[in-house]
Amino acid sequence: MVTTTLPPRTFGLAAHRLHRSTADGGLAQWAAASRPALAELQLGIAAVGGCADAIEQHALASHFPHLTRLPYGREGGVMRVVSRIAGGVHPEQELAGAIYLLDPLDPSSLYPEAQALKRQCISHGKPLLLTVAAAVEWMAVEAALQAGVSLRARLPAMVPSIDKQSVALIAHDALKSAMVDFAFRHFDLLSQTQERFATGTTGGRLNEMAWSRGWPRDLPWVQPLRSGPLGGDAQIAELVLDQRCDKVLFFEDVHVARQHEADIQLLERAVCTKSFEAACYHTPAMADAWARAWA
């Protein structure tokens, strides 16, 4: 049922045609896998026009406790999501996060709206979920935290157990200390993952932290790769494409000029290419919530 008022917490929802054009596409699979979490959270969904059409066409409306419709993308629907992530014109329309299921081959993935949405979500500390895998896991994360139970006890079918996940840890200069602190606090959990990778200086600092915690000094806790500007992001992209890495925890600093912006976009496009397997979480707050849910 489509409503005209937003519940206390609402996520914006958009998806490229690849994910919404068929009854078994990414949008439908996410809605089915996340239906219990959406109901438990009583989460509102504000769907951009094409998504709203697909929800109706594929008879998915019953999956959403609260559903509102935004204009089509060509009429400014995604622009409205960006504005409302930042607080919007009307405070009651503010969004708590955004799901944007991207097709990396769709030219609109490079439009200003898509870039601005990422920037505003990171700036305001709100979740941005760009793949089916991320959207499924994140709904389960929020539901587990709300219920005060471990995600391990209620794992959606599409989400692998923590010992089957491989994690990349990336942080820009201003956030490297935050990454080391995150890894220190969640060391036991992260040590349960199948493999860990890190770029440049971040990798060196994480290994030093792990050795100080008693990790064997002859074994790297994270596999160190090149720094981002020298190809580390591209190396992780290849690991994602080879399905050796399915979780990217990327502490991004969107407030400084980044000389290797193309490499960052390449990594994100690799993650979106593996939409049903890979996820990228962009902020310390998202990484911390993810880790607490798995504890």
Rank of each mutant, 00 (worst) to 15 (best):
F250M: 05
R217V: 08
A46E: 07
A278G: 08
G87N: 00
S150I: 06
Q235W: 04
T3Y: 12
A98Q: 04
P65C: 04
R196N: 06
A116N: 13
V180F: 00
L241V: 12
D188F: 06
A140P: 01
Y111S: 13
M179W: 05
T131S: 06
G76A: 02
Q243E: 15
F187A: 00
S227F: 02
A134C: 06
K274P: 13
A147I: 12
G88N: 02
T193F: 00
P7I: 04
P127Q: 05
H90Y: 12
W290R: 09
A23P: 12
L206M: 03
S166H: 09
V132W: 08
R9G: 15
A183Q: 01
L175T: 03
E113W: 09
D103M: 02
H90Q: 09
M158C: 14
I264C: 11
S21I: 15
T201F: 09
G203N: 03
W221K: 01
V81P: 01
R196Q: 07
R226Y: 11
D163Q: 09
L18H: 11
L230I: 10
L105P: 11
G232I: 01
F182C: 05
P7W: 07
A28D: 09
D263S: 13
I264Y: 14
L110G: 11
D163W: 05
V132F: 11
D173P: 10
E142D: 09
L102Y: 10
R69D: 08
R226K: 11
Q120Y: 15
T10N: 07
A237D: 04
P8K: 05
A135Y: 10
L13H: 01
P8L: 07
C272S: 14
Q29I: 07
S34H: 05
D288A: 07
S108N: 14
V240N: 00
E94S: 11
D263W: 12
L43F: 07
D163V: 11
S83A: 15
D253H: 01
A47S: 11
E268H: 14
D188M: 14
V141N: 02
S62D: 10
E252V: 14
R213D: 06
M79C: 12
T3S: 15
A114K: 08
V2Q: 14
L43V: 00
D233R: 07
V254S: 08
P224C: 08
T10K: 03
R17Y: 14
F250G: 04
M179V: 10
P71F: 03
V271N: 00
S108G: 08
A134I: 04
S123D: 15
A47H: 00
R226D: 09
H124I: 11
V89F: 13
Q223A: 13
R196K: 04
Q165I: 15
S212A: 13
L128D: 08
A116D: 11
